[in-house]
Simulated assay, not measured.
Amino acid sequence: MAQLNHETTTGDVLSAYLQGQATEFLRSLRLHRESTTDAQGAEESLEAARALRRAARRIGGTLHTFHPLLDQEWAAGLRPELAWLSGTLAREHAYATRLERLLDALHRLSGTPTVPQPPVRGDVTAVGSTRPGADPAALAVGRRSAGRWGSPRSSAAESGGGWAQPTPPGTDEQGGTPRGLTVGAAKAAALLERQLTLARTRAHSAALQAFGSSRFHAVADNVAVLASEVPLTQATEDLKPLAARAEENLAEAVAALPLGQAGHPYNAEALTHGLAASEAPEAQDAPWLKTRALLRLHRYAQEVLTGSPGGDLRLADAGHALDRHREAADAASAAASAARTPRIAPATAYALGVLHADQRHEVEAARFAFHQAWLRETEAEAEAVSTR
């Protein structure tokens, strides 16, 4: 990829980056279309979709940062379409990751034995079983969780049948976990599995419909044109001021974050506010999600300038922390949504409440990790300035 130097113009650098991402987009699309329907082909299809999504994000982010150098009407029309495609393709993977995260957390919190309990007569078909119209990739998560909890159950199991062996009141088989959490965790796992697997199946269907839509074909046609010709309007304009503006936007967003509060690894005060009904966690999370989006724009701008997809490791660490923040926040929201299911057993609601609190703790841990990564970056920049 071309780098910014005396021999190349800024238009060459920007064109080379956009054409490279457009080529990656088209290559991933071809691999996705050529993938087979067996297990290996399903995995290849998912990987191709992830690569296509990454390329779409980078093209859209670059159009956003460097739009003054590009044809305004063309860039303004393509950016939202790329965002639509990226968001549509991201949902299936997000639901699968969320389910696995929640099941792992329930297993960790409850200390549930890994030996499957015998099924109770009258159970309906497990989430991980094969059924007409099911997505094999989506059901893989259900099969993995069955090894943890035994046969998952539907809402029919909520009103009858135990999930653990009889234990002394107040404790589980290991003597440390409240028995209500042990019993409720298995039912909570079945409830979450049913809800999130259904959501993932719907997201998979929506992605397939998107691939066959005229809207997607229009996006693919625009990207194919981009792979051969970038509609520049100012080929000699310097890229660095625009990249610096992206960095300034990120710095302003970080300055608005409560980093002093996030500087404590166990932030009970923030957790209390996150659990309060009067102050929704989503309102607290919004500035962090905005910072995550601006951090991505800054990283993509640096990729354009340096020609390196790796970027700054410190920025990568900060980005990973914000990714964990979003995953934990979404998982907490899913647990809260499941707890609002009508007519669930008290033990199930209790387990989901504990799970929600655990994921809000993970949110605070991710904020702390971002705080530490950002401090390292700020200190490194200050040291670089002092040595000049």
Rank of each mutant, 00 (worst) to 15 (best):
F66V: 04
A138I: 09
G260K: 00
T272S: 11
G274F: 12
A207N: 03
E379M: 11
S278T: 13
W163N: 14
D71W: 00
A366W: 01
A365D: 10
A206P: 05
A262P: 02
A227T: 04
V225T: 13
Q72Y: 05
L198D: 11
T197L: 04
D323S: 13
A349P: 00
L313D: 02
E100F: 00
E327D: 14
L18I: 06
S110D: 12
T272C: 02
R215M: 03
R79T: 12
V219F: 04
S214D: 09
L313V: 03
R388K: 07
A244D: 15
L52K: 12
L139C: 11
T233F: 00
E252R: 12
P287Q: 14
R314A: 06
L31Y: 15
W149F: 15
L52A: 07
V304T: 04
E73C: 08
M1F: 00
K290D: 05
V141C: 00
A164E: 01
G111C: 14
D317Y: 06
G111S: 14
A331Y: 05
R108A: 13
A384C: 06
A382G: 14
L226M: 01
A253R: 15
A268M: 05
D135R: 03
E364F: 10
L63F: 08
E362V: 02
V141P: 00
D221I: 04
P68K: 03
T65Q: 08
A16L: 07
Y266W: 04
Q21R: 01
T201P: 04
Y95C: 09
S278R: 12
Q372A: 08
L14M: 09
G307Q: 01
G212T: 02
T306G: 03
T387A: 13
E43T: 11
A328I: 13
A75G: 07
A329S: 10
L31F: 15
E193C: 12
L102G: 12
E383C: 13
G212I: 06
N249Y: 15
A246W: 01
S145N: 02
P118W: 09
E379P: 08
A157W: 01
L208P: 00
R91Q: 14
R54I: 15
H325C: 12
E81F: 05
E81A: 12
R98G: 04
R58I: 06
V254Q: 07
A138P: 08
E44P: 15
A76T: 00
T97D: 11
A190Q: 06
W74E: 00
A2L: 05
L192H: 11
S333P: 12
L375C: 02
L250A: 10
A332D: 11
Q284F: 12
S333Y: 14
Q195G: 00
K290Q: 10
A365F: 03
L352Q: 03
W74S: 03
A286V: 08
E43Y: 14
L257P: 00
S45C: 13
L198Q: 09
E379Q: 09
E362G: 08
V127F: 04
F66D: 07
I59K: 09
D358A: 13
A16Q: 13
T177K: 14
L289N: 04
